[in-house]
Design a protein around this nucleic acid. Structure first.
Lengths: 227, 227
DNA sequence: CAGATGCGGAGTGATTCGCTCCGCATTCGG
DNA sequence: CCGAATGCGGAGCGAATCACTCCGCATCTG
């Protein structure tokens, strides 16, 4: 009998394939949103369609896994932010990490999958962590007081989507992709500076209701849940 | 003979249909990007597919028209900004108008259409107007000096896409749509404050090359130009 | 070396695409 | 008041693409 920690070649290869699959799915979904096709995902991962369907029985199962992983990374980013000594640095880390993780792509498929209890629970954890991050920054007086967690979330969602970078990447213009990524870093820096305390104006209107975000997980008419 | 200013019922109705068609196309493209189907556009406009194809011989012809109209509005926004006495107010007006016009949706179909001389020329006009707007704001010392026209353009593109609002609108939740629009106004205000002079940090890296934007009009491998 | 395992991708029916074409309602000219 | 003309909506077309199945084959295991 082999030692339990020792895995066969096949098992290791299968795990590597799974990682490649998830990473590829993340990339393709970031570009095509809910319209991402399993063929494109498999091709990007460099595996056959058959291998994809051996691991995930349906496309939705893969997407659910994708959402769970995204929420995990999102929570990790928030906790890493809380680990920073400086309240502002922590908030900035969370925001930039959230943008890079592609929180925006999560929203794209949010309405297309069945919501499991696991997803709801992880979502709650994330909200709690971000609330702490925001409260600390508010208490330290480094974040403009009229910004709420939902504002932050919307900002991340908005800045997370980068259709131009996706388009350039599809075209294989790696030099331009680098340029676009550097350019986006500047946009992010602008947004960060807009979040700092001491802003010249109050934000317009009332703080947005957090229901705005939770409602997005509900199915829509054009994206009916599977029966 | 009827007076030349007098048009028949049919002509007036056809014009109204055309306007509805263009507005519907703008909305559907804002949601679905280049994947927008002519059936969806016609349905949203409340006209038959046949009527659409009587006015535009192909889908691409409609999209080209859409881009031209978008560039017209964009130029008008820049000129309206220049008409403001206050340099900052002018810039802010341009930015907010550009976001609302849906400059972001132009980028989505930019790579899918044949570029006419008209489009190239209008694009040049827009760039010139925005350059003047930026230069005036820089000279007045109200815009942070490390922000370039391309930065502004990328910011507009980034903030122009609102997948969440599109999703809610498709679901017909008009109350949530209003809420989301108000929430986006706050995001825009944050970005605007981040653009003001006196920002605590310099933007990272070099100013982005304007080629980043012009290259996007070129066709891509997955979006080949029609032969 | 024989059996087991997991792989890639051709094939399947369903769906959606851009687009054509035609029956029909409405309007115009006399 | 009527026949001709006009422009409309949408059924229908071939092609493309979708999620998904299934099987021959290469590779690894005992």
């Amino acid at each position: 009998m082999s030692r339990p920690t020792r895995r066969t070649h096949r098992q290791a290869e299968a795990e590597a394939n799974d990682r490649a699959l998830l990473e590829a799915a993340r990339e393709v979904v970031a570009v095509d949103g809910a319209h991402a096709s399993v063929a494109a995902i498999a091709a990007r991962a460099g595996v056959g369609i058959g291998s994809l369907y051996r691991r995930y029985r349906t496309k939705q199962e893969l997407f659910q896994r994708l959402v769970v992983i995204g929420l995990d990374r999102w929570l990790a980013a928030a906790q890493a932010g809380l680990a920073h000594d400086d309240p502002w640095d922590g908030l900035a880390h969370y925001l930039l990490a959230g943008i890079d993780i592609g929180q925006g792509s999560l929203g794209a498929i949010a309405g297309t999958i069945e919501i499991t209890e696991e997803i709801t629970e992880k979502n709650r954890c994330c909200d709690t962590a971000v609330d702490a991050l925001v409260a600390r920054a508010h208490a330290a007086g480094v974040l403009r007081p009229d910004v709420t967690r939902t504002d932050l979330h919307l900002l991340i969602e908005q800045l997370g989507k980068s259709p131009m970078i996706d388009q350039l990447r599809r075209q294989g213009r790696t030099d331009l992709v680098d340029m676009a990524i550097r350019a986006r870093a500047r946009i992010n820096a602008i947004a960060l500076d807009g979040l700092r305390a001491g802003a010249p104006h109050r934000l317009p209107g009332e703080p947005p209701d957090s229901a705005l975000l939770s409602r997005r997980w509900e199915p829509s008419a054009d994206n009916p849940r599977p029966s």
